[in-house]
Amino acid sequence: MLHDFIVQFWPSTTDGLALGSIYALIALGYTMVYGVLRLINFAHSEIFMIGTFASLGVINLMGISTPLGGIALVGTLALLIVVSGTVSGASAVALEYIAYRPLRRKGASRLAALISAIGASLFLQQLFARILIPWWFGLPKEKGALPIQGRFVQREDLLTLGSFVIRSDKLIILVAAVVMMVVLDQFVVRTKLGRGIRATAQDPETAVLMGVNIDRIVSATFAIGGAMAGVAAALYMLRFEETNYFVGFLLGIKAFTAAVLGGIGNLRGALVGGLALGLIEMYGASIFGTQWQNVVAFVVLVLVLMFRPTGILGESLQKARA
């Protein structure tokens, strides 16, 4: 067991960070919406799924037939990030407009919004499985559940020191995720819109009195959270080159866990929680075997919450520390 851990330490670390980066980016959407609306947006995993299909669409449109490396790959990825981010962000805004806003206007309870979120999640999954995927890829209806591939990445080992290998795609994912996090963090701290988001998170009623347009802030929050899921989707496609209609389900649960682990409502907590969860899963799997991966991850979550009920960094979007 310990021997396995030592032998697999470096590969587990790099894989854990690459996986954790994707968790972290998805976790942002959960955490931002929770911070502002106190709502767990369960349809966020489908916003991610829509992002993966947007990336796949771009890959198909570009007609990439040979795996790309170097500058071409980075350029393609940048394009995927922009397209997926836009599509996912727009979908998230539309989702809020259709599934949550009417409830909020009528002053429905948070529970009602939660049910609406679950309904929206199932609706989007089945919409893709039954109608959109068969239509788009010309498959018979019952085959909509098949995974769809699009190959475009050439993987290279950039640095090899014994068992410590840095592979190009994993490095790109980690760097891209951290850059996006820093940009978002600065955006929330320094811009006027960011201040509005923080004000709304802290005290919606006072924020209205101070002239903050709540509807606009909520839309912006969904747009940013959705866009980050879109970025995660582009990075996911870089790593796995495949998607299907339920791709968001497990990742969504993991990302939500990461958000809680880091401190839900806290942007930096999402990054910390995501990377920590990715590493815990990989280390846990290397020591106990992959069948124990989720057990280890959730035991750690429970332990953290026992001693720090608000997560590693605590809730803080509403405390204006962002």
Binding site: D4, V7, Q8, P11, S12, D15, A18, L19, S163, R239, F240, E242, F246, V247, F249, L250, L251, E281, M282, A285, S286, G289, T290, Q291, Q293, N294
Partner: peptide
């Protein structure tokens, strides 16, 4: 021996066991 989660997409931990 090791297992994979059929619902997941990242089999890195299994691959990391197979390699050594």
């Amino acid at each position: 021996a090791d297992v994979i989660d059929p619902k997941g997409s990242d089999y890195a931990s299994t691959v990391n066991k197979i390699k050594p």
